[in-house]
């Protein structure tokens, strides 16, 4: 994605966000337009436009997976804590990351906390420290699947 396209895209995104927040009142653009321009300027000063070409098909595949996994995550943890005795065996584990882009790693780490039974604890030295609610369950396969989906969004083939 060129810098020009990225600016147009964030302009459209922020304007849409403002429209949503203000409820579409025409006079609100008096404040909205300067705020959108300032937000883009601030984001560029902070280096936030250094995103690679985000793949829209990749995003379209990640979203349903993410939604489904987070529903499973909620159901799983609810069932575990409501059982008597609780079906838990908490412990820490390390997951070696295959992703390289910092943004991709951040998105993956945040997704991990919503997957069934895993919680991202620390991102350090190409490894993700996770806390598992049941350390005997097989969460690695699931993490790899979500990691690949995140990689596709950032154009990283894993």
């Amino acid at each position: 994605m060129s810098a020009h396209n990225a600016t147009v895209l964030s302009l459209a995104g922020l304007a849409g966000l403002w429209w949503l927040l203000s409820g579409g009142a025409p006079s609100s653009w008096l404040i909205g337009v300067p705020v959108v321009v300032m937000a883009i300027f601030a984001a560029r000063r902070l280096g936030a436009t250094a995103l690679p070409g985000l793949s829209l098909p990749g995003l379209a595949r990640l979203l349903p997976l993410f939604l489904w996994e987070s529903v499973r995550g909620g159901v799983d943890v609810a069932r575990r804590v409501l059982a008597t005795p609780m079906r838990i065996a908490p412990g820490f584990a390390t997951y070696p990351l295959r992703l390289h882009h910092p943004g991709a790693r951040l998105l993956f780490a945040n997704s991990v906390s919503l997957l069934p039974g895993t919680l991202a604890v620390d991102l350090r030295d190409d490894c993700l420290a996770i806390h598992a609610l049941d350390r005997d369950s097989d969460f690695t396969a699931e993490l790899r699947r979500v990691e690949s989906a995140v990689g596709r969004v950032f154009g990283e083939a894993l």
Binding site: G74, V77, V81, P90, L114, V121
Partner: peptide, 28 residues
């Protein structure tokens, strides 16, 4: 699910386990 998250917060033994209940059950 909110109730299950709160029950988890009360029943689970340690800080990290409690975070599981708060993030996942409450978000759903």
């Amino acid at each position: 699910f909110f109730a299950a998250g709160s029950i988890g917060l009360l029943r689970l033994p340690d800080l990290h386990s409690r975070l599981h209940a708060l993030t996942k059950a409450d978000n759903l």
